[in-house]
């Protein structure tokens, strides 16, 4: 499977990226929005506001993310929404300056482990694969971070890597 890495929003503090599976129209994050906008408009609104604050004011500080949602050290985490809200959005955090947004879905009430939800398991494991692919691409020199950490740079245009 191939993925294209794209930037979607950038502020003074943090840049947001997402990925598009080659052959599909929408990116992972767009699919998350489309899948949840009818049933969870308030939750999406809250996530949007938090992203705006992260991008423009605070940076992607660790305290705003539910960490360790993936394999050890792969950066996969979830952006916190309000405690009573029901959406889980998986992302990969690269320090305070860059976040790759993935997909997610409804968090069933009382869920203790993500494996209790087929949808969340699927989205989470996909993002683990994306994180692993990006790490490999960085090691192989296919992509690199800019000096400020807010751009992904490559001789590839568009930036498409294998997962």
């Amino acid at each position: 499977m191939q993925i294209e890495i794209v930037k979607i929003r950038s502020g003074i503090e943090t840049a947001f990226f997402t990925v598009r599976i080659v052959g599909e129209q929408h990116t992972l994050f767009e699919k998350f929005i489309i899948e949840n906008q009818t049933k969870y408009p308030n939750e999406l609104n809250d996530l949007k506001n938090r992203m705006h604050v992260i991008a423009s004011k605070t940076g992607a500080r660790e305290q705003f993310f539910k960490m360790d949602e993936g394999n050890p050290g792969d950066g996969v985490c979830a952006l916190y929404d309000l405690p009573e809200k029901k959406l889980r959005l998986y992302c990969i955090r690269y320090g305070c300056v860059a976040v790759i947004l993935g997909g997610g879905g409804e968090k069933p009430e009382g869920m203790k482990a993500l494996q209790e939800s087929e949808k969340l398991t699927e989205e989470n494991y996909l993002l683990r694969d994306v994180s692993s692919a990006i790490t490999s691409a960085l090691k192989d020199g296919l992509i690199e971070w800019s000096s400020d950490g807010m751009e992904i740079i490559s001789h590839l245009d568009p930036i498409i890597i294998e997962i």
């Binding site: 930037k7 598009r20 930036i159």
Partner: peptide, 16 residues
């Protein structure tokens, strides 16, 4: 070397 392209869409514009 180029930076990742900025992806725009109605879905994202409306969301943000």
């Amino acid at each position: 070397k180029n930076p990742a392209r900025t992806h725009k869409s109605d879905v994202l514009d409306d969301f943000f």
